[in-house]
Simulated assay, not measured.
Amino acid sequence: MAHADRTSPPLSEQIRQAHAGRAPILLPGVYDALSARLAAAAGFDAIYVTGAGLANSRLGVPDIGLTSVDQLADHVAAISDAVDVPLVVDGDTGFGNAVNVRHAVRKLERAGAAAIQLEDQVFPKKCGHFAGKAVIPLDEMRGKLQSALDSRRSEETLIVARTDAGATNGLDEAIERALAYRELGADVIFVEAPTSVDELRRVAAEVDAPLVANMVEGGSTPMVPLDELGEMGFSIALYANAALRTAQRAVTHAYAELREHGSSATLTDVMATWQERQEAVGKPHYDELEARYAS
C-alpha cells in the first residue's frame, strides 16, 4: 500500500488545471481518519470530508444538521493529522448567521481545511437530496459568503459556495444564485441536485466557474461518467458517501455472519489481513519513530 503521507499539489492549482483543461478532479468522500488514509493511499490528490459521513459515522444520525462546528473541527483535525492531502470540508450552513460563519471558517481553517463548502439552506440544514429543504434569502447568503471570504487567513483557503435553490425555487434561481456567489468571489460553485442531464448541461453552460457535480447513488441527480462531466464543463466530480455506504454494507454482512456462525471464519477472505490493517494505519512509520527515539 502507498504511504498516506505523500504530498499532493495545492488544491487551488488542481482546480485551476481542472477548470482550464476540462479534466475533472475525482473527489472521494471520507468519513474518518482511516478512510482518509485509505483514500490517500489509493492515489487521490484531494479528499472530501463529508458532513453526512460525520453525522452517520460519529453520531449514528441522518444528515439533518445535528452536528456541531466543534465536532466537525475535531474531525477535520484528526483527518488532517493522518494525511497530507488537501481537504475539502463540508461546512454545511456555517452553523448559523454571518458571525457564526466567521467563527466556523477560522476553526476549520486552523484544523486543516484547504477548502470550506458553505450552502444557502436554512439552518438546521438537510441532506441536499432530502425532501423538505428551504433556502435563505439571496442577500443573507451574500452576507454569509462575504464573511467567509473576509475571515479566511489565507487566500489559498478556498470557499465553495453551494446553492440548494434548485429543489425549492427552480433551476433559474439556482443559476442566478450561482452567478451571484461567483461574482462575490467564491472560488468554486456547487449547484446541488440537478435532476437531469439537461439541467447539468445548463448549469455548466451558464455558470463560468469551477463547478462541482455531486454524484449521489440513488439521489436526485443522474450518474454521469467522469469524462462526460468534464466535457460539460465540471471541474470536480464528487462521490461524497460511496465509501461509507460500501463500508456499511460490508460491516452489516460481517455482523450477520458472526452472529449466525459464532465465528469469523467465513469472513477471512473478505477482510483486510492483519498486515494490511497495520500498514493502513501507518504502524511501520511509528515503529521507525520508536526505534529512532529509543534510549
Results as ranks from 00 to 15, higher is better:
Ala4Pro: 11
Arg6Pro: 07
Arg6Trp: 13
Thr7Gly: 07
Pro9Met: 09
Leu11Arg: 09
Glu13His: 06
Gln14Ala: 07
Ile15Leu: 13
Gln17Asn: 07
Ala18Gln: 09
Ala20Pro: 02
Gly21Met: 07
Pro24Gln: 08
Pro24Trp: 05
Leu27Ala: 11
Gly29Gln: 09
Gly29Ile: 10
Gly29Met: 05
Tyr31Glu: 13
Asp32Ile: 15
Ala39Arg: 08
Ala39Gln: 03
Ala41Ile: 10
Ala42Lys: 11
Ile47Cys: 01
Ile47Lys: 03
Thr50Val: 08
Arg58Ser: 11
Arg58Tyr: 12
Val61Ala: 11
Asp63Asn: 08
Ile64Gly: 00
Ile64Lys: 00
Gly65Arg: 04
Thr67Pro: 02
Asp70Val: 15
Asp70Thr: 15
Gln71His: 06
Leu72Arg: 05
Ala73Glu: 12
Ala78Thr: 12
Ala78Trp: 00
Ile79Thr: 10
Ile79Tyr: 00
Val83Arg: 09
Val83Asp: 08
Pro86Asn: 12
Leu87Asp: 11
Phe95Gly: 11
Gly96His: 10
Gly96Trp: 04
Asn100Gly: 10
Asn100His: 12
Arg102Lys: 13
His103Trp: 05
Arg106Asp: 13
Leu108Glu: 12
Arg110Tyr: 04
Ala111Gln: 04
Gly112Asn: 09
Ala113His: 06
Val122Trp: 00
Phe123Val: 06
Cys127Phe: 03
Ala131Thr: 06
Lys133Trp: 00
Ile136Thr: 13
Pro137Asn: 05
Glu140Leu: 10
Arg142Trp: 02
Lys144Phe: 02
Leu145Pro: 06
Ser147Asn: 02
Leu149Met: 05
Asp150Gly: 00
Arg152Phe: 01
Arg153Cys: 03
Thr157Val: 08
Arg162Gln: 07
Arg162Glu: 08
Arg162His: 09
Ala165Leu: 01
Gly166Glu: 06
Gly166His: 05
Gly170Pro: 06
Gly170Tyr: 00
Ala178Tyr: 02
Leu179Ile: 15
Glu183Ser: 14
Leu184Ser: 03
Gly185Ile: 10
Gly185Asn: 03
Gly185Lys: 09
Ile189Cys: 08
Val191Thr: 14
Glu192Arg: 04
Ala193Gln: 03
Ala193Lys: 03
Thr195Pro: 02
Val197Arg: 14
Glu199Thr: 11
Leu200Gly: 08
Arg201Ser: 12
Arg201Ile: 00
Ala209Trp: 01
Ala209His: 08
Leu211Ser: 03
Val212Pro: 06
Val212Gly: 01
Asn214Tyr: 06
Glu217Gln: 15
Gly219Asn: 05
Pro225Asn: 14
Pro225His: 08
Glu228Cys: 02
Leu229Cys: 06
Glu231Asn: 08
Met232Asp: 04
Gly233Gln: 07
Phe234Ile: 12
Ser235Gln: 02
Ser235Cys: 03
Leu238Lys: 10
Tyr239Asp: 02
Ala242Cys: 08
Ala242His: 14
Gln248Arg: 12
Arg249Thr: 13
His253Phe: 01
Ala254Trp: 10
Tyr255Cys: 10
Tyr255Met: 14
Glu257Ala: 05
Arg259Glu: 14
Arg259Gln: 10
His261Gln: 15
His261Pro: 04
Ala265Tyr: 05
Thr266Val: 09
Asp269Val: 01
Met271Asp: 05
Ala280Ser: 15
Ala280Cys: 10
Lys283Ser: 02
His285Trp: 09
Tyr286Ile: 04
Glu288Asn: 01
Ser295Ala: 14
